[in-house]
Structure formats: C-alpha cells, structure tokens
Design a binder for these strands. Structure first.
Lengths: 265, 265
DNA sequence: AATATAGTTTCATTCTGTGAAATAGAACAA
DNA sequence: TTGTTCTATTTCACAGAATGAAACTATATT
C-alpha cells in the first residue's frame, strides 16, 4: 500500500503544524529560542524558523509584551514570564501535586531516588524528584529534557509503541543528533522491554554509573505519557536491589493513575 | 525629547493588546490558566478571556500540541513544556547567570539573603536568590509574583516613575485585589523613596517580620526593571545592619549593570 | 426518557497576518 | 570622512487565516 496520501506531511520538525498558523509559528520561535541557549538575533531566528523577517519581528514583539521573550539591543532571549508559568505548573498540576507524596513514600521505602517523567514530543521531561539515601552525583534538575530512547524511564514509555511511532522516534533522535541512541527501528526495539513487560531496566545507558528501573503510569486511554523511576549510582545498588523496588513502583504508579482518573475537576 | 506616540487606549487589562490578535489572545488564555491555579473548562476560559468558544478551543489545541497546555477530560491546565522553558531562562539568561555570583558575594559579605527581582507588567518576579545566615522563614520560590507597591525591591522600581505610571500601577493593584497596597497615587507616592534616593527600605510591609533594603539595577535607557535586595527576619538584623549593606548592594548593582551593557552578543 | 448544558464542527465573511519591496539604521572598510 | 554591506523596521496590497453564528453532538441533570 503506497501511502502517498498521508494527511500528515510529517516531514516537518517539532509538533505538527496544527491549525492557527500564526500561533504555531510563534511557538516555533519560542521553541527555537530555547534550543539556541543563547540570545539570538532577529535574522537568526527568522532563518532557523523558516519565516520572513517582518513576521518574526511581529511575533517577537507580542511575546515580549507578555514577558515570554526579552530583548537587549538586537538580541532576543526567553523572558522572565516563564518562571511564574513553571511555578504554576509545579504547584497546581494535579499530577505533579499528587505525585510528590507518592514519590516520597517510594523513596523512603526503598532508599532510592524516585522521579516522575512526562513525555513531551519525542523527549521526556523530569517533572518531580525525591532524593534517596545515595544521592545521584550528576545533577538533573526539574525541566531537563531527556531522550525517550535511553534510560529506563524513557524506554518504558516506548514499550507498547507501534512500529510507526518508533519510526518517528528514531527520526527525531537522528534529527536531534542524539548520541548512543538507536538509529533504526529494529535496534531500538531490541533494547526496549517486551510489550508485555511492565517495567524497564537500564544500566549505564543514558548516564554512566547510573542504574534505574521504571514503570509507566497508565492512563485511561492511549499510550502512557508518564513514567516513574527508581535510580541509583551503580555502586550503591545492585540490579537485584533495584528490581526489588519494582513492586513498590508499580503500586505507586497505580495510586497515581487512580488519583488522576478519579479526581473530579 | 518627549514623544507622544501613545495611540493606545490602554483601558484594557494586562499587557496591552498589541498587534497579532490571535497570538495576543492565545497568550491571554495562557495567562488566565496560570491565574486560575486550577484546571479550567473551555467555557470558563472563553468567558474569562472574553472570546468565543471555537476560538478558545482552537487556541487551546495548538498550545496543547506544543505542551504549553495539558488536558484531562474537559479541563485544561498549564502543560509541562513550561519547565524546559524556565530552565532555559535560568541557565541561559545573561542577567540571571551573571547575577548569581554577584548575589553570592553580597550574601557572604553581609550574611543576609540577597535576591534579584525583575519587573513584569505591574508585578515583580523573584528571579534569583542566595540565602544568608539567618534563613527567611517564609519560603519564596523562584518565579513568585510580588507586588511593586510593597517591599523595598518593589518600591525602588517605582521611585522614578511618573504620575502616569503610578496611576497605572494603582489601577493594576486595585484590579488585582492587592491588599494593603496603596489605592491612590498620592498614598503610594508617599510611601515610595524620594526620586533622588537610590535605595528603598521596608519593614513588615509585604510580609510581617521581614525587613529589607533594595537598590535598582540601572540600565542604559528608561526606567530600571530589575532590583536587588537584602532581606532578613526582623529579629536577625536591625535597620542599621541592613542599611549598612546598601553600599555593598550598590556596588553589586553597578557590576550587574556593567555586565549587561558590556556583554557582547 | 426528557431536558439542559457544554463541547465540537461547519462554513461564509472579514479582517488579520503575510512577505515583497522600500526605507532606515548599524557596522565596517577604506 | 565616505562608501559599502549587512541587519532591522516600516509600508502596503493581497491572500488566506482567524473568526463567530449556527448547526450538531456529547454529556450532565432532572
């Protein structure tokens, strides 16, 4: 079946260009500003986002009015308004709020570091963390973007993915220049847990000297987009120790899931 | 040269409705979602923002595609994409980055808590903080929105404001339902430092049991939009102790200012 | 089941977002 | 200085995107 008529061109980058062109483009500019990690000039942004200078300028001006972007001289950067937004998310998001005590309990039960990740596009983001007894040496602050293809908490989110989805993941990994990531669907699939497995294990995968197990947080429909993990420096926990935490993790994930579904808005 | 370019009715709320209506409206929805502090239904958002249901829905869908908004059932909330954005801001913003060591030095010199605020609209936002010896009892996390009208770090930003600007500040304070804030330009002005003064002092003003001094970070043109402060619990520092820190603060502000102007992008 | 309320899709109209081109402003060289 | 090149900004006419009324569907509520 030749599929020349896919509704999605999909050859594009980032989130699909949904409706509302101007808004989508504005969010592209915003995303590009984050990617750049340094102040950008107008022409850089316009080129990077593939839009005209006037359009880019107009977008930047509006974003600036709302504090989402700051300008000094001719360079633009992410603005301070993102901070209250992030605070709002961390303090009010039902998942994050209910996750905190749950992670706390898992961490104290196991003595390991417990984390909550959420999927965003073809990456995952650290959204909550409670440290265990053996602190992780590397710092991994909230909001960090991590690959789906490496690390237990990423792979478990892909365990039940279709080949189509994996294909997209691989494409994104290549586009994003991820190192060490799988570059074919087959090699990626081979490293994922069995679709039947409900947890993933990884050692020295995303970061050397770090081992972890993770389970997905089920949600009513569709693929899971959240996972929770237990992590430890290799020397502080054996594979067996970690895996002993899985039942606890499972319970935690179940509790989170219920809290989400049950909560009445 | 005074330029009377104000073709703005300005009778509107929030950041002025600049060009690009659809984008401005989207940012209004996003702001409303933060204000609400809890998941909102479509119709609530539409009403709060004064726009039609279809329009609101379309905006939410795009924001959701980019992770700026999440949806569960029929309720919308701020999405996880704000976390990487905030991280990007904290790690890459030249002001924040260069402020950290400067605040560090002031804090260790004086033993007091040093903070950097930035103005956003008619509020200020805590953007960086280094704790002193006497920890503040109340927690004041990054990204917290605080009034301009209360507290040293707020008032110093208004010290050189025109009556017109103060009028807007007062209007915003009333609209935002700030308690304890000045409700007339006169009463506000009377509590502000003299325009000639370069620092502000406050005690028990924004928060009881807290005293602080602040200076503005000058920038090339226009009113300052950043300030740095020294704060302490009342019992840990006398007014004299705090004010003794002002010269140090001044120096810090000067250094920050230079760093900003000087940095070559 | 009947009714009311909230969410979603459709579609014609309008006005907004758009980029080409012109203009203004910087940065740099000679 | 003057000329040259690059970047940013404004103008403007047009295309098409954004819009809301209305129809429709889904979900609560009685």
């Amino acid at each position: 079946m030749a599929m020349t008529t896919s509704t999605e061109p999909s050859a594009e980058e980032g989130p699909k260009a949904s409706n509302m062109r101007s808004l989508s483009r504005a969010l592209e500019v915003f995303a590009e500003l984050q990617r750049a990690e340094r102040p950008q000039r107008l022409s850089d942004l316009a080129k990077a986002c593939g839009m005209s200078l006037p359009t880019t300028l107009r977008i930047l001006r509006v974003l600036q009015d709302f504090g989402m972007v700051s300008q000094t001289d001719k360079s633009y950067r992410i603005g301070p308004a993102v901070l209250p937004a992030a605070r709002s998310f961390l303090e009010n998001d039902p998942l994050v709020v209910s996750a905190r005590p749950v992670l706390q309990q898992v961490a104290s039960q196991t003595g390991l570091t417990a984390s909550l990740y959420t999927r965003l596009g073809f990456e995952r983001i650290l959204v909550a963390r409670v440290d265990g007894e053996a602190p992780l040496r590397y710092d991994l602050p909230l909001g960090k973007r991590l690959p789906l293809t490496l690390g237990a908490a990423g792979k478990i989110l892909l365990a039940s993915a279709s080949d189509d989805e994996l294909q997209q993941v691989v494409a994104a990994a290549i586009a994003g220049g991820q190192e060490g990531a799988a570059f074919t669907v087959e090699s990626l699939r081979s490293r994922l847990p069995e679709p039947s497995a409900d947890y993933a294990y990884s050692a020295d995968e995303r970061a050397t000297g770090v081992v972890s197990v993770a389970v997905a947080v089920p949600n009513r429909l569709g693929r899971p987009s959240e996972s929770i993990s237990l992590t430890s420096p290799v020397e502080a926990a054996s594979e067996a120790t970690l895996k002993a935490g899985v039942p606890e993790l499972r319970r935690a994930a179940g509790r989170l899931s219920e809290l989400l579904e049950g909560s009445v808005y």
